[in-house]
Design a protein around this nucleic acid. Structure first.
Lengths: 349, 349
DNA sequence: TTGAAAGCGCTAACAA
DNA sequence: TTGTTAGCGCTTTCAA
């Protein structure tokens, strides 16, 4: 008899159904068709299994087949609209394919990224999605070494299949819109558009910054170095830099391009100290979308990145067995002020 | 020689270091101390392992030890500030303890909750955290049946250890603040506070609704049934009901208690259509906190739930091996309008 | 202080 | 059409 409390195994089902373990295995995992097991035998076995509450032990199967059914995702952070949206679509899509998703967050630390990947390898993941990696090439190297299927998302690797949103196009759209809409201001220090936030060492940021510079140069003749304040992603830093800028140029600039939601949140903690009138002479845009961010006291242009499409394309690349370094671009969308995009927050709360 | 491309096993390390597999196993998993293996033998083995890039196969260990090192979390949704904050703290804390976190989201469907739990069981998870379950008792039963350690978060089970935020206290605080601050309004239909959103069948909602009713009754003498519009968590529904309410009572109510961020997002899509003056005669509060929600065109009182504490306490309950149904309460915090809480979004972007 | 060997639950040759 | 058996990589007695 089976040890009580523990789950039944195929040996239990074999005994109970009068079949052999291998027949049970085949009947239960679907391979009975080509193992030429009689329909009724298979059915009898399935009935017994159901009655006993059998469910397969994926560890054992994984060990035997050298495929775990686990798929990993490496993320910088979880509590960030963009990344949590990625992880949402990732888990949904993984389970939909019968895979079990495992997520690690690394707080943008290269060492942790490598450690995380190694942890995931211990669990014998079959493939991994790497989003927003600060050191893509290191991770890419490890994946190639151990022959692990992988795709980069958001921040690409030169050595691996990658899918990113089209940062250059998105940033150009936003910069142009800001410059077009900017009011004329007397003070020359405030008459220019500024960019706040992001890390120029990271691919996404550098693309956005370059696109901002280009748009400014094209539409305004030139772009000064002081117009780009790439102070990183930490809200507190963005808050400081926002304050410093306002002090330096004597008020809000005519145009402000904020690079990412965390930077925006930081800047906001200073912006809210300003009188409402301060915003009359200023146009603000943020690269990234937040439904509440769209309804602040002042209007904000936002850029929405299609995280669903990013994940879908990443899975598609894996499906087609991509190994060579391709770079897929997903176009982002410019969202006018005071607009709620449908279905951005979970429809199910 | 080892098959190229595949990871080295303890047998490879054994051969290379001239020790036996069992000695290697002990040297590498820390049990060498009480297996009385010589310090230098252990060191030699570890050196070889490091040189070969050995990392343990958790599937094999799990199979042998009947402990996988996996810990599961079941969530209704991922792209929701509260739940994504829970999952963030969960993954962080799990990895910190050397456990591998696996998250499933169920879209508030009882069937999916059961299916998800069974999937996790196939992966031989050692324990599971169940957050926001619509049918806690069904899940509780399964866990007890298979002897799986588990804790409920946010929505409790009567049969299992649970940790929830103190919905009654939080809702009472918010309701009282709204009622105290509410302006006097001539139209009697608009002079009362209303509650919008939430599902009265769910524990958290029902507690909040009851607390709202109590506070209203206590401070205003009575609470009419039409003051509670528990229309669920879907933004679109909340938008409809917001519009209907405004039509019915001829404008914004003097006090509006919005139950949850998704309901708020829905309501917002209608609120933004109103002229700014409409908000002068109204006080709005939302149960749940969002940093951008705190800076809308109108002031909003918000309630912050301590998701970090929820997760910590849940792990603590597991640690102490709790099996009996205890219910722990974590107090939430009332956040005044236009306030950014530190560290709510990821400090690291 | 170390090694040999059995076995965790499953799959896949190979036999029958 | 089904059964027997070896083995995935690890841990853990038991023996040496």
């Amino acid at each position: 008899m089976r040890r009580t409390g523990s789950k039944p195994t195929i040996y239990d089902i074999a005994r109970l159904s009068g079949a052999s373990p291998s027949t049970v295995s085949a009947a239960l995992n679907g391979s009975w068709k080509d193992r030429r097991i009689r329909e009724e035998t298979a059915q009898r076995i399935r009935d017994v299994a159901a009655a006993e509450g059998y469910s397969i032990n994926m560890q054992a199967r994984g060990l035997r087949k050298a495929r775990s059914g686990l798929v990993g995702m490496i993320l910088p952070a979880h509590d960030n609209r963009f990344f949590s949206s990625l992880s949402q679509h990732f888990t949904t899509e993984a389970w939909r394919r019968g895979l079990c998703p495992v997520i690690v967050s690394t707080r943008r630390e290269p060492q942790e990224e490598v450690r995380s990947l190694e942890s995931l390898l211990s669990y014998a993941i079959d493939s991994v999605f790497i989003a927003g990696a600060t050191d893509p090439e290191a991770l890419s190297r490890i994946c190639h070494q151990v022959g692990l299927a992988h795709v980069f998302i958001d921040l690409p690797s030169m050595q691996s299949p990658s899918v990113v949103s089209d940062n250059a196009a998105g940033a150009a759209m936003l910069a142009r819109k800001i410059i077009e809409t900017m009011p004329a201001v007397d003070d020359p220090r405030r008459a220019k558009p500024y960019l706040l936030g992001g890390d120029p060492r990271l691919y996404a940021s550098s693309r956005r910054i370059a696109a901002f510079r280009e748009a400014v140069t094209e539409m305004r003749g030139h772009c000064d170095d002081d117009q780009v304040i790439a102070c990183g992603y930490v809200p507190a830093r963005a808050a400081e830099e926002m304050e410093r800028l306002i002090d330096r140029i004597g008020g809000l600039p005519a145009g402000l391009f904020i690079n990412s939601i965390p930077a925006f949140e930081g800047a906001l903690s200073h912006l809210v100290l300003l009188p409402p009138a301060a915003f009359a002479q200023s146009v603000i845009g943020c690269y990234d979308y937040d439904p509440f961010g769209a309804f602040l006291q002042f209007p904000v242009y936002m850029v929405w990145q299609d995280s669903h499409a990013l994940v879908q394309r990443a899975f598609a690349l894996l499906d087609q067995g991509a190994k060579t370094p391709v770079l897929e671009m997903i176009p982002p969308v410019l969202v006018p002020p005071r607009t709620i995009l449908p279905g951005t927050l979970s429809e199910q709360g």
